[in-house]
Amino acid sequence: MTKKIIVPIDGSAISIRALQFGIHLAKALGDEIRVVHVQPMLEVLGENIIKESTEILEEADVPFTTTIRIGTPSLEIIAEAKEDNVRCIIMGTKGSGNATGEIGSVSQATLAMTPCPITFIPEM
């Protein structure tokens, strides 16, 4: 059965780099990418963020699914990771927020609760 690699996307350059890393891993292992975009409210739609990811994944020719979830990013990412056949999460150390440390608050919270391996892609 195909495993899923979860890649949270927030529109930041680092989340796109995480997606590119996920594509390489998915190709090597024969896995599927699960792109997850989390937004705090329904009024703000993330279709443009998902569209950019979809274009990259279609060009890379890897199987993928996308979802937009509403809520707290770390909690929604963890909810996705608790589904069946999840191999890992690949995400940036920071996203589009104002994190000042080495790792952002969403990344920290996700790491603290993750039910599966997680790989962080650093800011360059």
Rank of each mutant, 00 (worst) to 15 (best):
M1Y: 05
T2Y: 09
T2C: 02
T2A: 09
T2D: 04
K3G: 11
K3L: 15
K4D: 09
K4F: 08
I5K: 05
I6V: 13
I6D: 01
P8K: 08
I9V: 14
I9H: 01
D10K: 07
D10W: 01
G11Q: 12
S12H: 04
A13Q: 10
A13K: 10
I14S: 00
I14H: 01
I14M: 05
S15K: 09
I16Q: 11
I16K: 12
A18C: 08
Q20L: 14
Q20A: 03
F21G: 00
F21H: 13
G22P: 02
G22N: 09
A26S: 11
A28M: 15
A28F: 14
A28W: 13
L29Y: 10
G30I: 13
D31S: 15
D31G: 07
I33F: 03
I33Y: 02
V35L: 10
H37E: 04
P40I: 08
L42S: 10
V44N: 07
V44T: 08
V44P: 00
L45A: 11
G46H: 00
G46E: 01
E47S: 09
I50R: 02
T54M: 14
T54Y: 05
E55W: 01
E55L: 14
E55M: 12
E58R: 15
E58A: 09
E59Q: 14
A60S: 09
A60I: 11
D61C: 13
D61W: 06
V62Q: 03
P63N: 11
F64C: 08
T65M: 07
T66Q: 11
R69V: 10
G71D: 04
T72V: 15
P73G: 08
P73T: 02
P73Q: 08
S74R: 12
I77E: 07
I77F: 04
E80R: 14
E83R: 13
E83Q: 13
V86T: 09
R87I: 03
I89N: 00
I89D: 02
I89A: 03
I90S: 03
I90C: 04
I90F: 04
M91P: 02
M91N: 06
G92W: 09
G95H: 11
G95A: 12
G97F: 06
A99D: 13
E102G: 11
E102M: 14
I103T: 12
I103S: 05
I103G: 04
I103K: 04
G104E: 14
G104W: 12
G104T: 10
S105P: 05
V106E: 01
V106S: 02
V106C: 06
A109S: 11
A109F: 02
T110I: 07
T110F: 01
L111H: 06
L111R: 08
A112H: 10
M113V: 01
T114Q: 06
P117K: 10
P117R: 05
I118H: 00
I118R: 00
F120V: 11
F120Q: 02
I121F: 00
I121A: 01
P122H: 03
E123D: 04
